[in-house]
Each structure stands twice: as structure tokens, then as C-alpha cells.
Simulated scan of single mutants.
Amino acid sequence: MIKSYTDHAANERTFLAWLRTGVAVIAFGFLIDRFDLFVITMSNALSVQPEHRAELESMSSKLGHGTGLWFILVGIILIVAAMVRFVRTRALILDQEIHTAGFMMEFVLAVVLAALIVVASIPLLVSAL
């Protein structure tokens, strides 16, 4: 039996949850980045007036390219941070000394993701007004 098996299993589950979150953020970034294709397709299908179509295209491209890229980069950073956290926690589990729990990396990544969501929603709020 592996010594501290439950701790190692919990560390691996946490790592996999971080990976899932990173992949989901990357997928959301691709969705945002390619949202302009959806808008153009829908405007063609619904025969939108040309002036409204130009406004939709400009708004969707402004929202999509920059914000989508930032979500993709944050997702990649989440995956890298998950790997660093997994390896560090594994080393701490194997060490026999008592260590204090740290939450700084999780807190910083949560703040960055929340800020990115707020920044991404600003164009939607402005266009609604």
C-alpha cells in the first residue's frame, strides 16, 4: 500500500479539477473568439438590415478577439499552475515535516479570472445601455 494514499489521491483529484477548469476556460475563450462567426451567420439567416449588420459585426469582433485570447491565456496559466501545485503538494506529502496550508495561488487566480469576466462583460453592458 502507498503511504499516505488518501492524501495522494486527494491531490490528484484536485489536480484533475484544476485541469478541467483550465480546459473549460480555454474552450470558453475559443467560443468568445469565434462568436463573430455566429453573429454573421445569424445575420445572414435572418436578413438583418445592412446598418444593423455592420453594428453587430463590429461589436462582436471587438468583444471576441481580445477577450477570447485573454481567456485562452488564463486557461493555459491555470493548467501550468495546476501542474506546479500538484508537484509541490506531492513533495510536501512525501516530506515528513508538518507544513502550513497556502492559498495565495488559488486566491490570485480566482481574482484574475473574476477580473477577466468583469472586463469581458463591459462591452455587453455598454451596448445594452
Score class of each variant (00 low, 15 high):
V112R: 06
G68Q: 01
I32W: 00
L31D: 02
L37F: 07
R20F: 09
L19N: 08
A10M: 04
A81V: 07
M59G: 08
P123Y: 11
A115L: 12
A110I: 05
A9M: 12
F38A: 11
E106L: 08
T89Y: 02
I122T: 13
V112N: 05
E55F: 13
I79S: 06
S60R: 05
L46V: 05
A10L: 06
A54M: 15
F30G: 01
L78T: 07
L73P: 00
T100L: 13
H8Q: 02
K62F: 15
E97S: 10
V118Y: 15
R85P: 00
L116S: 07
I2M: 14
R34A: 01
F28S: 08
I79Y: 01
D36Y: 06
V108C: 05
L116N: 06
V126M: 13
V118S: 04
V48Q: 07
G64N: 02
Y5S: 12
A24R: 09
P123A: 06
S60H: 05
G22A: 06
D36T: 09
V118L: 14
T21S: 08
I72V: 12
A27N: 02
E97D: 09
H52P: 03
A45F: 12
H52V: 13
D33K: 05
A10C: 03
P50M: 03
A9R: 13
T6N: 12
I26H: 04
L78P: 00
E57T: 13
F30I: 01
L92R: 12
W18V: 05
I76A: 14
L116A: 09
T6S: 11
S4R: 15
F15S: 04
F107Y: 13
A91K: 13
Q96W: 03
L46S: 06
W18P: 01
G29V: 00
F15C: 04
L37M: 07
D36Q: 06
A9W: 03
S61N: 11
G22I: 02
T21I: 07
V118K: 03
L37P: 00
G75R: 07
T41G: 14
V25R: 03
F107R: 14
E51H: 10
I26W: 04
L94H: 14
A128T: 08
A120G: 08
N11P: 01
F107C: 13
V74G: 01
L69Y: 11
A24T: 09
F28E: 01
L92Q: 11
L129A: 14
M42R: 08
I117F: 15
G102F: 10
G68H: 01
A82N: 00
S58P: 05
A10R: 07
V48R: 10
A10W: 02
I32E: 00
I32S: 00
S43F: 03
L31M: 08
M105Q: 10
I77L: 15
M105E: 09
N11H: 03
A91C: 10
A24W: 06
D7E: 13
L73F: 14
A120I: 02
E55K: 10
R85A: 08
A115C: 10
A120R: 02
L63M: 08
G102H: 14
I77N: 04
R34I: 00
F30D: 00
V74F: 12
M104H: 10
A10D: 05
I2Q: 15
M59F: 12
G29F: 02
G22Y: 03
V118N: 01
R90E: 06
E57R: 13
L16H: 08
V84L: 07
A45K: 11
T6H: 11
D36W: 07
L116D: 04
G75M: 04
M105C: 03
S47Y: 12
I122V: 15
L78R: 04
